[in-house]
Amino acid sequence: MTRWIPLWLHRLSSPPTFYRFAGAVWPWAMGLALVAGAIGLYGALVLAPPDYQQGDAYRIIFIHVPSAWMSMFIYAVMAVASFVAVVWRIKLAEVVAMQSAPIGAAFTFITLVSGSLWGKPMWGTWWTWDARLTSELVLLFLYLGVIGLYHAFEDRRQGARAAGFLAIIGIINVPIVHFSVNWWNTLHQGSTINFFGTSKIAADMLWPLLVLTLATKLYYVASLCRRARADLLALEGNKAWVHELVAPEPAP
């Protein structure tokens, strides 16, 4: 059993196998994501009671929190894949890392926008230089840097490795940024806004949140599978398996 898993992983890392695997996975993941998303949203917008302090405005948390979690989760996936790509030069890892970046950037952006929409009625400002907010902004810059660097190279595999290197540096950087901003903010203004509050989250608010988190995860998997499939086809355009795929009849 223990020998079987590495073998399976090794097989999976070959582009044609992954292409078929991803092709089988993504409709399921996407379908489940849609179902979970619908259930979660219904629970969030209809079933969950309004907050006694924040009224209905708090419902933006159901978008904000899952996106924030995803923005970090995807960065972690990207960094791990980048590490594998840089050290072992595995093509699939490069593809996974680079195709994760735009999805992660989108989630980070959603987090920032929904957060500031929420912040306006709650704390009366769109933006504050809170440690969490600033770190999230830095995360967005890191994503953009990775994407930009990837596209700056003519050779896409080389670009993927270079951008992956940046992603690894970035993951070392994020905790330092978070810590330094924390330190900086407490120095300048005595109180930070504790926007997650100490109020316990009620169970009928919690479950839609968790379901929506699951939905975003599934969406990520589905989206990554589709993007990786397309990218693999482009990268491996000269390989025999792609030719067989495109033209099932023997080519002249």
């Binding site: 660097l149 190279f153 080389q158 290197f165 950087n173 330094s180």
Partner: peptide, 26 residues
């Protein structure tokens, strides 16, 4: 990292900003 690329000026600033933020703050 950008040594192999043609355009790098703005990209460099974009990448450097998050990295040098702690230094500026302290």
């Amino acid at each position: 990292l950008t040594a192999g690329t043609r355009r790098s000026g703005m990209l460099l600033a974009l990448m450097l900003l998050p990295l040098c933020m702690p230094a500026v703050i302290f």
